[in-house]
Amino acid sequence: MRIITELCDICGTCVSVCPADAIIVEEFQVSIDNARCIECGKCRQVCPARAIEGDVK
C-alpha cells in the first residue's frame, strides 16, 4: 500500500482501521510502513480522499 501524498488530507481515517499498526503519521504527512503492512486493503477502502493505492493480498 502506498499513500498518494498529493491527495492525502491527513485525516487519520486509515489509521483507525489498520489492524497492523503500519501507518505512520508525521507532522505533515502520512506514510505506510511496508514491513508491517499485511496488505489487507482496509485503509484503501475507507480512505475518503481515495489517497491510498496498492494491491490487496
Binding site: 481515517t13 483507525s16 482501521v17 489492524p19 477502502q45 475507507v46
Partner: peptide, 9 residues
C-alpha cells in the same frame, strides 16, 4: 482498530 462497518468514511 475499528471494523469496517464500525466506521463511517
Amino acid at each position: 482498530a475499528l471494523n469496517l462497518d464500525d466506521l463511517d468514511t
